[in-house]
Write a protein that binds this DNA or RNA. Structure first.
Length: 339
DNA sequence: CAGGTGTA
DNA sequence: TACACCTGG
């Protein structure tokens, strides 16, 4: 998922406390997918309500947001609209991979191989339109604003982030940087521990802040060149080149300056790669609507989570209390008015 | 993922 | 108090 820039980009750890009072634009689909893939029982089965419908995305959203809002964060969720045409081939491949994982999961479960079952179950995760609707209804009841992007939520979130320290994108994917997000927060959890993929163990992961300006400075690249690095390595929209990882992609862009020249030097189809670069450099985004936080509608949250999805009422009510900081009426209107 | 509980 | 383990839904 996303472009693997981790080994190249400089970052600093950041605490939730430091993010207090800041407006964070969440890549909603990315965040829900993380919950769906990680909030699971021992054999890899996600949490479900009494009717058998998956609830991992709702559990994750409720508790994650409770911590952040309690810490003073002002969240905004951005959902994916229509996938870009260019992405269709990749999406098709992904569907095939998921189907294969799904079959392997069933097989591993039959054979009692729990570890493999868990891994395959995660790979089989899929986020449905219904899950997004449920999550959006929950946000609405909690007083957290959301909107849908024309296309990629990641791109919309990245470009919605104004200049200024009061704002950042939130996603696990480095793609946000290619789309031009001035600041990106990754690993935004409160307990600083995260389950290792596949293992039933947790490892310390601290939230980190990445500044695009700093990345470009450090790597001595323009944003166009950074996109070139990503495209050479492979993104959600293209496969990448065999034998080219972060190091060689960076070297190639530093040496040749443009993606076209680097591609030619590597004997690759420059035209196709430039088309992929265009997705990042000319993303399909729209205007950011006026945003407002609160009030928190406790009864609506209870109806949804307890009535509809079998959550425990006591737990829900006490968690909803933690959203009270959003009831401040000064937090309504357009973004420029906040700071 | 995050909170709660058991154990030393 | 610290941390491994379990549950939630």
């Amino acid at each position: 998922m996303g472009v693997d820039l981790g080994s190249l980009v400089p970052s600093r750890t950041v605490s939730v406390r430091e993010l207090s009072g800041k407006v964070l634009f969440f890549d909603g689909n990315n965040v829900l997918y993380q919950f769906l893939a990680s909030i699971r029982g021992r054999d890899g089965t996600p949490l479900k309500d009494s009717r058998g419908r998956v609830t991992s995305h709702l559990t994750g959203l409720l508790y994650r947001l409770a911590n952040l809002v309690e810490g003073g964060v002002l969240p905004v969720f951005v959902w994916d609209g229509k996938p870009p045409e260019d992405k269709l081939a990749t999406i098709q491949e992904r569907r095939e991979r998921r189907d294969a994982a799904s079959k392997a999961w069933e097989k591993a479960k039959e054979e009692g191989d729990l570890e493999t079952a868990r891994v395959k179950a995660q790979q089989a995760s899929r986020l449905s339109g219904e899950m997004i609707e449920q999550a959006d209804a929950l946000l609405d009841a909690l007083g957290v604003p959301s909107f849908t992007a024309p296309s990629e939520g990641e791109a919309q979130a990245a470009l919605a982030v104004p200049e200024g320290e009061g704002f950042a994108s939130v996603s696990q994917d480095y793609d946000a940087l290619l789309f031009g997000a001035p600041r990106l927060v990754r690993n935004l959890t409160t307990t600083q521990k995260r389950k290792l993929p596949g293992k039933d163990k947790r490892v310390e992961v601290k939230p980190e802040l990445i500044r695009l300006e700093r990345v470009l400075e450090e790597l001595a690249l323009t944003r166009e060149q950074l996109v070139g690095v990503g495209v050479l390595m492979g993104t959600d929209f293209n496969e990448g080149i065999e034998g080219i990882g972060p190091k060689r992609a960076l070297d190639a862009m530093q040496e040749h300056g443009t993606l076209t020249k680097a591609a030619k030097a590597l004997d690759e189809d420059a035209e196709t790669l430039e088309l992929v670069a265009e997705i990042f450099l000319e993303p399909d985004v729209g205007d950011v609507p006026d945003l407002s936080w609160g009030p928190v509608e406790e009864e609506a949250v209870v109806d949804l989570l307890v009535g509809e999805h079998s959550f425990s009422e006591d737990r829900v009510r006490s968690t909803v209390e933690r959203f009270s900081s959003l009831d401040d009426p000064s937090r309504q209107g357009s973004l420029e008015d906040f700071f």
